[in-house]
Nucleic acid binder design. Structure first.
Lengths: 336, 336
DNA sequence: ATAATTGTTGCACGCGCGTGCAACGCTGTG
DNA sequence: CACAGCGTTGCACGCGCGTGCAACAATTAT
């Protein structure tokens, strides 16, 4: 047992134990919920701990147990403001429940393995992938290299059998979107998706086009922006519409997410000099803060982030072991 | 010494040592830069490690040494897209140099102490505060409660003597901004700042107003938005301009940052029906991605984030122990 | 050949706490 | 009074690796 009288500035459980007149293990129990300890012992320990400024060392605790209470938040798409919303919500909720969040940047495919390695070296209890540009094959490769306890794909779909997916229900969402557009009289949609990844199945696009086909019997053309960013979206939409007559234009651009939709609106307004929604309507997905600004007033669909985060907590606690898709909320504004 | 033959799935240095025919400590040296080890020993160890899929456990390493190689990134202002840029740059650069980043949400004053406590419980080597709404007094209180090895204020000024500040040089920036505006013939600026915090000295505002006074002899009125977000900025600017005649209006709104400037532009265009810059010019600060979109084309000032991050690395390595203010880059676009 | 020097390797001990078990004290019943 | 039952407490051992030093081998100087 260490001498509690030494002059080191770090206060350990031994110091508190000496001050409270109990053993080190009783101190640990005082800080552990549902531990077998008498009320008076706990109170005495807590009082001594406060007097000494003691707080359990979570790093040492992680080493001794096999839980780190650390979650790696892995993301790559820092151009999309929606990431900021996701990060904010996740970190806030996770920390409030005792989980720490390690923010990891995953730039490209080669980097995926490095990111997962870095996370595993920190003994994270789970890695949560928050992103849109992830290749399923890449993830599988990276997973093979480094075994993590849990891998959760958040706010995106994945076909990978070794992962758990928590996402917004794109099927409900896109059908509602299609119903809304049909009701408003739109008949010639074009779907604007993000970069064309190989293995990730694009739920939003396929759901929308198939449902539209089903309801109207007409085919929905689709195009891809080179990145989930407004710049490439502007370029792609400008190229699409540049030389078309009014009769030849789509009447609505259905975009895979808000940041692309905003690029589409910018192209329509500032590159082509047309009006939204009078000349062409636009819809998005995510409901990022900017979408509610007077400049855009975008019709979109809000993901149920808080509910999704609650699901993540259940997954982390082992109470939930299957994929989840939650319905969000349709938001009608001025662009349709 | 543990038996390397056991069937556990975690590979430790002991396993690698047995495979390579050396001691555990030689394995550790093989993974440590500038360690005293022969080339052939290192190669043999690395080969054995790769074969076994070994990677050093950074958590155990942190416990044994008194370095965690972990940095807490503490922020609160998740409405400003600029935070996303800062987070991306910092995490990428820090991880590439071997530092892990713990993302911590600090919502309000009471929370500051909790955030710092959480960080210290994880044994972070330093906490980096990335934000705009921090009260110096609050930080001091929180610091008193939990001693951290280092506390760095990033991209913001602080008067706190116990912290290190790494920021953009607001004096150079705002003088250049003022020179630019005078050169373009603007004479009646209004400064639009964020929420009026008590102790944080607003460098940008005071620098601009004092320098303007110095060059023109005229006073610069200033107003405050209730938050660093476009919504409150829209409200404040609308209230400012609502009932004014053209002669009575400012000719330029100098904003403390881009997100507020974008709110100002939205107010001018969509609430008042005026044009930027013909009726009123606008300037920002940060150069967030949206500022370069065709919808805004905002004249602004870009912070030297990468250089600031490099400074942070030097602080973390102990090579730098004093405050730093770095010049950024003035970006002239269409709003002036 | 011997000593001095440099480069390389092994090891005892500890970082702060968790796990699982054994021992303790208390209450109430027969 | 003895016993079981229960709540409570203490403890040996280990988590995986770093530190500082001592021992050793390889090289050069004398």
């Amino acid at each position: 047992m260490a001498d509690p009288e030494d002059s080191t500035d770090t206060v350990t459980a031994d110091h508190v134990a000496a001050a409270a007149g109990v053993s080190r293990w009783t101190v640990a129990r005082a800080f552990k919920k549902d531990a077998s300890i008498s009320r008076q012992s706990r109170e005495r320990v807590i009082a001594a701990a406060e007097a000494l400024g003691y707080a359990p060392d979570l790093m040492a605790s992680s080493l001794a147990s096999d839980r780190s209470n650390l979650i790696a938040l892995i993301t790559n798409d820092f151009n999309n403001p929606h990431k900021l919303v996701l990060l904010e919500r996740l970190t806030r909720i996770l920390w409030s429940r005792g989980w720490g969040t390690l923010l990891v940047h995953m730039s490209d495919s080669e980097d995926a393995s490095a990111a997962l390695l870095a996370a595993s070296q920190r003994r994270v209890d789970a890695a949560v992938v928050i992103g849109t540009r992830f290749d399923d094959k890449m993830l599988e490769t990276a997973l093979g290299a480094r075994r993590l306890k849990k891998l959760v794909i958040f706010a995106r779909y994945s076909q990978n059998p070794n992962t758990l997916t928590i996402a917004c229900d794109d099927v409900i969402a896109m059908r509602q979107m299609a119903d809304h557009l049909l009701e408003r009289g739109y008949r010639k949609p074009v779907f604007l998706a993000g970069p064309d990844t190989q293995s990730a199945k694009l739920h939003r696009k396929s759901t929308f086009t198939e449902y539209w086909q089903e309801r109207t019997g007409t085919h929905v053309p689709s195009i891809n922006a080179a990145a989930y960013d407004f710049g490439p979206a502007i370029d792609r939409v400008t190229a699409l519409l540049q030389d078309r007559t009014a009769a030849d234009r789509p009447d609505v651009l259905v975009c895979e997410n808000d940041i692309i939709a905003i690029g589409a609106m910018d192209a329509i307004r500032y590159r082509l000099g047309l009006r939204v929604p009078q000349d062409i309507a636009v819809t998005g997905f995510d409901d990022i803060p900017l979408s509610s600004s007077p400049a855009y007033q975008l019709t979109t669909y809000r993901q149920p982030i808080t509910a999704m985060a609650e699901c993540l907590l259940e997954v982390l606690e082992g109470k939930l072991t299957h994929d989840v898709a939650l319905p969000g909320q349709f938001i009608a504004r001025q662009t349709t």
